[in-house]
Amino acid sequence: MLRIIDVYGELLLKAMGQTLLLALCGLFFACILGLIFGLMSVVKNRPCNIIARIFVDAIRGVPMIVLAYFIYFGVPYLLNTIMKIGGVTLTALQAGTACLALNCGAYMAEIIRAGIESVDKGQMEAARSLGMPYWRSMYRVVLPQAIRTMIPSIINQFIITLKDTSILSVIGFPELVNTAKNVLANTFMSFQTWAIVAVMYLVIIQTLSVLAKHLERRLKHGL
């Protein structure tokens, strides 16, 4: 095991960096998508509700590995070969980010919807009765209370998304699992390699969990 760390340690650390980069890119856009579709599902507007519903159901109904293949291979094929637009290429990072953002975004939308719905509707009514516009009331009164109940689920979703980056090894993104496969191809030491990879994931996720707990505690008192 020491030999692997000695020879491939740097490579694996770099791969861990790539995993984190991919996860961060994915989560960033997932938060935006989640917020947009989450809010679209709570506003009093049928078309918005329906669009949000379709988005969430479609993404949740497709395995992420299929989504990854679809975005990385399917979309450029559609544009280049079928629609003859040509010259469209996606890097593995772009496709991976899109894939994570869509997948995690759908779940985030559900978390945000549930969080907002968990706030008593009297809170919105009270704010509106004072003459505050809908979005002002949402921003000042409802969302701050919703976020508190959403935090544990959001952290959970972040962790799932971080682990889901491993699925994107199938489109050749040089993250941990993909890199580990290359190491394995050279060394044939599967126990040691996968043990190291497992520990690396564990360390990242534990760090994230501790940070999250800390944040959760602080939000409980503050806000």
């Binding site: 009297g122 009270a126 009765s129 004072l130 003459g131 508190r148």
Partner: peptide, 20 residues
């Protein structure tokens, strides 16, 4: 409606104070 509501106060059965 927001303009009108500024001038019409409302008190609810369940208070609805902003908990945050």
């Amino acid at each position: 409606i927001n303009k009108v509501r500024e001038n019409v106060g409302m008190v609810f059965q369940h208070f609805n104070l902003f908990n945050n």
